[in-house]
């Protein structure tokens, strides 16, 4: 396999159980460099756990997580941290540090990761805030003074500030009205394309998945049961995927809920 063929992110046989309950039961997934993968799936199917395993926030029980062909689970602690340092993350609720101003939030990663001076990091933070449609004056506010949509923008600004090669988006449009959801999706696409990043987004929102993703995959019962171009997911031909994407009450997923 040539270097060009190696996926930016390659996951094989990833397993994670909490107690006796398996959440990830052998996940296989490839994400090519510079593309966006959307992972859909019902609540509690392990989408967030998948991202947290890649980020190192949760230790998987088994499997491989390769970034640029290197299995990061076999690396030493320092090397693993370095590999994960190129990942930016937009959390579902923003996870902004409420003890800091917006500007300090956005500058945080620049200072921590790149040892930028405080002044330089603040200058960059104002630039990035502008890229997500926020005025520099917003930088002086605290996160609690912002609306949900503005908080998401700030969280996005924080995630992209250090220009990561890989970006994760956890339910980026949850809690937003459809217009603001579309705005955030547009910003995500712009940022990912501009930076040339590889992205994984997890979402329940089918409209969002169509806007963000080049490819899509569905996680069900701890496994990827379908993977293909995002544009085809609404016509996948897989009954489980079709039921989920069309929001039908009747179908295989509902039968499982009744059991």
């Amino acid at each position: 396999m040539s270097a060009a063929d190696i996926p930016k992110i390659r996951i094989r046989g990833l397993r994670k159980a909490f107690g006796s309950k398996p959440v990830l039961d052998g996940v296989d997934l490839d994400v090519a460099a510079g593309t966006s993968m959307v992972v859909i799936g019902g609540s509690g199917t392990g989408k967030s756990v998948l991202l947290k395993c890649i980020l190192g926030l949760i230790e998987p029980d088994a499997g491989r997580i390769e970034i640029d062909g290197q299995d990061i689970l076999t690396l030493g602690r320092r090397a693993r941290q370095d590999a994960r340092a190129e990942i930016g993350m937009l959390f579902q609720n923003g996870a902004l540090f409420d003890s800091m101003t917006v500007r300090d939030n956005v500058a945080f990663g620049l200072i921590a990761r790149h040892q930028s001076s405080r002044a330089a990091a603040h200058q960059k933070a104002d630039t990035v805030l502008g890229q997500v449609g926020l005025a520099p004056s917003v930088g002086d506010l605290s996160p609690s003074e912002l609306s949900g949509g503005m908080q998401k923008r700030v969280a996005l600004a924080r995630a992209i500030a250090s220009e990561p090669a890989i970006m994760f988006f956890d339910e980026p449009t949850t809690g937003l009205d459809p217009i603001m959801g579309a705005v955030i999706d547009g910003l995500i696409v712009d940022c990912v394309k501009r930076l040339g990043s590889t992205a994984i987004a997890i979402t329940h929102d089918m409209a969002s998945s169509q806007r963000i993703g080049d490819r899509a995959a569905m996680l069900h019962k701890g496994r990827i049961i379908w993977e293909g171009p995002a544009a085809q997911i609404l016509e996948s031909g897989n009954p489980i995927v079709d039921q989920f994407t069309h929001g039908r009450r009747e179908g295989p997923i509902q039968m499982e809920l009744r059991r």
């Binding site: 980020l55 926030l57 941290q81 340092a85 993350m89 959390f91 996870a95 540090f97 945080f108």
Partner: peptide, 16 residues
């Protein structure tokens, strides 16, 4: 509060 609002996880993703 930082834990349940993912702020501690966010710190880790920001190399801290």
């Amino acid at each position: 509060t930082m834990r349940v609002t993912d702020q501690i996880d966010a710190l880790q993703t920001l190399s801290t």
